[in-house]
Design a protein around this nucleic acid. Sequence first.
DNA 1: GTCTATAACGGGATAGAC
DNA 2: GTCTATCCCGTTATAGAC
Lengths: 193, 193
Amino acid sequence: MASRSTQILEAAARVIARRGVRGLRVEELAEEAGVSTGLIYYHFKDRTGILRHTLEFINDRAERYTTAQDPGAEPLSPREELDQVLLLELQDTPEVRENSTAWGELRASAVFDPVLREDLARATLVWVQEVAALLGQVHPLAPAARLASAAERLTALLEALSMRWLSGGLAIDHARTLVSEAVEVELALLGRL
Amino acid sequence: MASRSTQILEAAARVIARRGVRGLRVEELAEEAGVSTGLIYYHFKDRTGILRHTLEFINDRAERYTTAQDPGAEPLSPREELDQVLLLELQDTPEVRENSTAWGELRASAVFDPVLREDLARATLVWVQEVAALLGQVHPLAPAARLASAAERLTALLEALSMRWLSGGLAIDHARTLVSEAVEVELALLGRL
DNA sequence: GTCTATAACGGGATAGAC
DNA sequence: GTCTATCCCGTTATAGAC
């Protein structure tokens, strides 16, 4: 059922995870997706078009795996949901690796690419607000600005630890511990107002 | 008294800040440095050689500006020194911008380049230990593992906020506030043991 | 929608003179 | 140590057939 476009974007995530944004060759992507380069340009216009759509693709995918619910299981408490949304981004599975790698690459590229910059800023905002909302469910009385700051710190921390993990300087278990502790600390801070 | 090599590395920092690692063209670097491309290859062997030496260069430079002391001024308290080491990385000056941009780019590149990876891991470790030592001066009784964790979180947070700042998604004043609060929180946590 | 073929270009790296 | 000249490869993007 996967459309041609989807098939190409799935391949793009894999290739970016393997070679990075700067190492993405349209020809290699074509081979990975099992299509021709011409078709890729037909669907995505140019190299930047590929990257923008890949960003959208990995965002949707992350949304899916961080908010997945076992049907029939106990519904999660706000605190559990919070932990899940953050810690599920630190798993050593192909899907998460691909997503994190691509996200990091696109984030880095955005510093020099105004087009990506806008898309990235929008996606980041959505993510921060999602985390802020979960923090707000745990501490309903905390002021919105405080929630936003905490969410910005937690998401930023997660981004940086992901990159250190992906560049081999940090074990994933340790990264998870560091995030867990950070959540703990931010919640304690919010409770103390 | 800047040697030719230094002159080239200074130019490299400027070019990377302008175009990124992926946008660094040896020819543009040559022009920026006022030398020929041949000379660059003579001194640094290849593209990767340029990047490795640039990493070393920006590390030395950061060491200088984050630990600078006004001669004749009051010596800083450990807490002040800590704030300074972290917050001086969030200034909108050409030097800091260049350093932060290059650091972020090299960090991102390291995910796909084993050579850079090693250099980066080493440099990161030194930085984390420096921050851990400062935290230890504020809280001499805190266990080393706790200090290390706090330092990892603070340096990681700083990296991520720098990138968000450089990609235009975050005002620098706000980034500074977020880091200050994080220092506060981490110190409170260390004091509670 | 999809492919093949190729135009067009950019940029890393080296040879060799000075 | 430094420069000029250039080789040569890889890559993006498009044209045109099916």
